[in-house]
Design a protein around this nucleic acid. Structure first.
Lengths: 155, 155
DNA sequence: CATATTTAAGTGTATATACACTTTTTGTGG
DNA sequence: CCACAAAAAGTGTATATACACTTAAATATG
């Protein structure tokens, strides 16, 4: 007898779709990402890129590591995700003044302009989700998502 | 005056982290995926691969398109995601009998063995999230995730 | 002060994701 | 039957994700 109930067998596979946390989170992530992508399309930036612009606008200049921590994103993932935005001249990444190991990320003027252009589109996407889901339920979901991040990180 | 309130300006960027649906979903997806990956590691399969094995075990043989619809995953994404499992001999993909355009996916014996090995690990991951989040809140989250998928698809 | 350790970041590799486009097969009207 | 539309799937390309490993700089330690 192990620590956990392992009586689950292959016959219960059809139930996993309703109960599996990681599957349902990833599925919802795909569905909602698709909606935001469609709506943000005229701005030319993808949902993740929008997020990076927002963070640098709010907290920049920020180091790669501190930014990764805020986003709950692996540092090396963030390094890669910054690349398209650097290439398009929307973000600037420069060596840190005090600590020469670090690199600091800031939005460029072009990045801020494009962010300003994207903001009403993001707002519309938010409204659509809020309208379709209900604002009470959306607030509850956002709250539970924050909680599950803490849960997963402490578990 | 547009249809939506576009008074949101760059100064509100610091609030977006708490309210943005797509950011919070993707963030939670990253955090929970990481946990499941760690726990599933001894089984040698990743969370997405576990999901694909479960679906084929429960509903196989299934065509690529029908499977993609169940998973709310782009068909071409699924095609690519099947590759590692085919390569490892855990899934079999064969041309459909009636319709020669289609291809049907089934688990192999090796796939079923590996799934059986992964199931108690998946169960443990579920327990850990349930314990850290609370079973009431987890059930509510799963329910809201299902709802937000419908919301995003209909919005 | 010299060395060892720790820390910030980048690279190689692999999976995950999806759009635009193409190929093959099925069905459908005439 | 034939041409055309619809459907199933694959490919090219690009972003997103993260682990293992490496490099370079800062800090601690003797």
């Amino acid at each position: 007898m192990t620590k956990y109930d392992t009586t689950c067998d292959l016959g219960q596979c059809s139930l996993i779709g309703q109960t599996c946390a990681v599957f349902n989170l990833r599925k919802a992530s795909r569905a909602v990402t698709k909606l935001y992508e469609e709506i943000l399309k005229p701005s030319g930036i993808l949902p993740t890129q929008f997020t990076l612009l927002v963070v640098t606008r709010a907290f920049g200049p920020v180091t790669i590591s501190s930014m990764a921590e805020m986003l709950v994103m692996d540092r090396t993932t963030l390094t890669r995700n910054l690349k398209p935005l650097e290439r398009e001249g929307l973000l600037r990444v420069v060596p840190g003044k005090d600590d020469k190991r670090s690199r600091e990320v800031s939005p460029t003027n072009k990045g801020l302009e494009q962010l300003e252009e994207a903001l009403p589109l993001w707002q519309e996407a938010q409204y659509r989700v809020e309208h379709a889901l209900g604002s009470v339920r959306l607030d509850r979901l956002l709250d539970d998502l924050t909680a599950v991040v803490s849960a997963a990180r402490s578990a």
